[in-house]
């Protein structure tokens, strides 16, 4: 039984990681064919030198950064609002976290329809709004978790010592939730950076982001070593961000001195 379980676990891991490993390995392969002939960094050199890809990377970064800022501001505010009690609070909490569960395609089409109805046209700006919309839920969830571990009397103590309500928030509550805010920001940035479906519906044809560009290249020419190289880079960047986000979310609430 144990052996069977072990073998099954192995099979699952192989299924999960072999495709990624293959992609990574072939991004360093000297040959265009899927047969190992020798190590090269040519594909990386070539992709990084490609103006179209550079442009896509730039747009992806701008989109991710702008939508992250927006999502962090709105998501943190939503989490703070949920600390007070007000009628319909449960409904509010559900509505704020629901977008996490809505399929991307539904979200994408919905936003597309909305922008169409509003007559705004599609641009990087509409994509920023779209990304902020789904990311604010993630930020709100992460920051809420952090707030639950924060003692509210700290804010009272700060006011008692002369801080205005805003000052108390800035000097006491915000430092306490900061790891949650940063962690939420990194998560939002990663999700925005990787997103294809929602961007496809909301950015307009002139604004191809990196995942979209990869899709377009693969659709035209099949999977090439260049695509392997780009994908490996995306994977690396995402891993770094996600690991950083996870680490920060585990910083203890009552962490020691500075």
């Amino acid at each position: 039984m144990r052996k069977l379980l072990g073998a099954w676990t192995g099979l699952v891991l192989v299924t999960l990681y072999v495709p990624i490993a293959v992609m990574g390995v072939f991004s360093f392969n000297a040959s265009r064919r899927p047969r190992w002939t020798g190590f090269t960094l040519d594909w990386y050199r070539k992709t990084l030198g490609d103006h179209n890809i550079q442009d896509a990377v730039w747009k992806t970064l701008v989109l991710a950064a702008a939508s992250t800022v927006l999502a962090v501001a709105l998501g943190t505010a939503a989490a703070l609002a949920a600390r007070r009690s007000f009628p319909g609070k449960r409904l509010w909490n559900t509505l704020v976290s629901l977008p996490v569960m809505v399929p991307d395609i539904v979200m994408g089409i919905g936003l597309f329809a909305l922008f169409h109805a509003l007559g705004t046209g599609l641009s990087l700006a509409t994509a920023v709004i779209a990304h902020a919309t789904f990311n604010l839920s993630y930020v709100a969830i992460v920051v809420s978790a952090r707030l639950q571990g924060t003692d509210r009397t700290l804010e009272l103590a700060a006011q008692d010592l002369g801080a205005t309500p805003w000052g108390a928030f800035r000097k006491v509550t915000f430092p306490a939730i900061l790891p949650g805010v940063v962690s939420g920001a990194l998560l939002a940035f990663t999700l925005s950076f990787d997103d294809f479906v929602i961007t496809y519906f909301t950015a307009g044809t002139g604004n191809m982001t990196l995942p979209w560009k990869v899709y377009a290249m693969a659709a035209r020419m099949g999977v090439t070593p260049e695509i392997n190289a780009v994908s490996t880079l995306i994977l690396g960047a995402s891993l770094v961000l996600v690991v950083a986000a996870l680490r920060l979310s585990r910083v203890p609430v009552t962490g020691g001195g500075r």
Binding site: D151, L154, L156, A176, T254, G257, R258
Partner: peptide, 8 residues
């Protein structure tokens, strides 16, 4: 509960 600021 003293309400000391943990980050200071």
């Amino acid at each position: 509960n003293y309400a000391l600021f943990p980050h200071l």
